Computed example of a mutant assay.
Amino acid sequence: MSCGNHHDTDCSEVLAEVWLFLDHECDDARRRLLAQHLDECEPCLSEYGIDEKLKRLLAAKCGGEHAPAGLKDRLRQQIRVAVLEQAEVTVEEGPSGTTTTVEVRGTRIEQRG
């Protein structure tokens, strides 16, 4: 998705990470970048608002019950995988460590750690 305006962070990137933003699961620098985009982009802000309302509704309707042990971790992992796939990010673990690859507008960025 793109609103047609230029932003430092592409709309599709922001929407792919909106749940990480809502759950405070991104670092402060990334959070500021996403917040700046949401402040500047009405279509993304609208989508963020829908997701935020959905999260609050789920918390209100499902907040009194306790999930089985490990469910929260499994759900977070599945959401993280879905977000990474949607944002064209791959994380590979091998004998030499972890490699993270990000594809952004035809540019490939690799980080080894």
Results as ranks from 00 to 15, higher is better:
residue 2 S to T: 15
residue 3 C to P: 07
residue 4 G to E: 05
residue 4 G to F: 00
residue 7 H to T: 00
residue 9 T to I: 15
residue 10 D to Y: 12
residue 10 D to S: 12
residue 10 D to P: 07
residue 11 C to P: 12
residue 12 S to K: 14
residue 12 S to D: 15
residue 13 E to G: 04
residue 13 E to Q: 08
residue 14 V to E: 00
residue 14 V to F: 01
residue 15 L to E: 09
residue 15 L to F: 03
residue 18 V to W: 05
residue 18 V to L: 06
residue 19 W to T: 03
residue 20 L to Y: 12
residue 20 L to H: 09
residue 21 F to S: 03
residue 21 F to Q: 06
residue 21 F to L: 10
residue 22 L to G: 01
residue 24 H to E: 15
residue 24 H to T: 08
residue 24 H to Q: 15
residue 24 H to S: 11
residue 26 C to H: 07
residue 26 C to F: 06
residue 27 D to M: 01
residue 27 D to L: 06
residue 28 D to M: 04
residue 29 A to R: 15
residue 33 L to W: 09
residue 33 L to V: 10
residue 33 L to M: 11
residue 35 A to D: 11
residue 36 Q to E: 14
residue 36 Q to P: 02
residue 36 Q to M: 02
residue 37 H to M: 07
residue 38 L to I: 05
residue 39 D to C: 07
residue 39 D to N: 10
residue 39 D to Q: 12
residue 40 E to M: 04
residue 42 E to R: 05
residue 42 E to H: 03
residue 43 P to L: 00
residue 44 C to D: 04
residue 44 C to T: 09
residue 44 C to Q: 01
residue 45 L to T: 08
residue 46 S to G: 05
residue 47 E to M: 05
residue 48 Y to D: 03
residue 49 G to Y: 02
residue 49 G to V: 02
residue 50 I to A: 11
residue 51 D to Q: 15
residue 51 D to N: 13
residue 52 E to T: 04
residue 53 K to T: 10
residue 54 L to K: 13
residue 55 K to A: 11
residue 56 R to C: 01
residue 57 L to Y: 11
residue 57 L to E: 06
residue 58 L to P: 02
residue 60 A to D: 14
residue 60 A to G: 03
residue 61 K to I: 07
residue 61 K to C: 06
residue 62 C to M: 07
residue 66 H to L: 06
residue 67 A to Q: 13
residue 67 A to F: 00
residue 68 P to A: 10
residue 69 A to S: 12
residue 71 L to P: 09
residue 71 L to K: 12
residue 73 D to R: 09
residue 75 L to A: 06
residue 75 L to I: 13
residue 76 R to Q: 13
residue 76 R to T: 05
residue 77 Q to D: 10
residue 77 Q to K: 03
residue 78 Q to E: 12
residue 79 I to N: 06
residue 81 V to L: 11
residue 81 V to T: 14
residue 83 V to K: 09
residue 83 V to I: 14
residue 84 L to I: 01
residue 84 L to A: 04
residue 84 L to R: 14
residue 86 Q to L: 09
residue 86 Q to D: 12
residue 86 Q to R: 15
residue 87 A to M: 09
residue 87 A to S: 02
residue 89 V to R: 03
residue 91 V to R: 10
residue 92 E to L: 11
residue 92 E to K: 12
residue 93 E to V: 13
residue 97 G to H: 10
residue 99 T to I: 15
residue 99 T to K: 08
residue 99 T to R: 15
residue 102 V to I: 14
residue 102 V to D: 07
residue 104 V to K: 15
residue 105 R to W: 05
residue 105 R to H: 13
residue 106 G to F: 02
residue 107 T to Y: 11
residue 108 R to Y: 04
residue 109 I to F: 14
residue 111 Q to C: 10
residue 112 R to E: 13
residue 112 R to A: 12
residue 113 G to P: 00
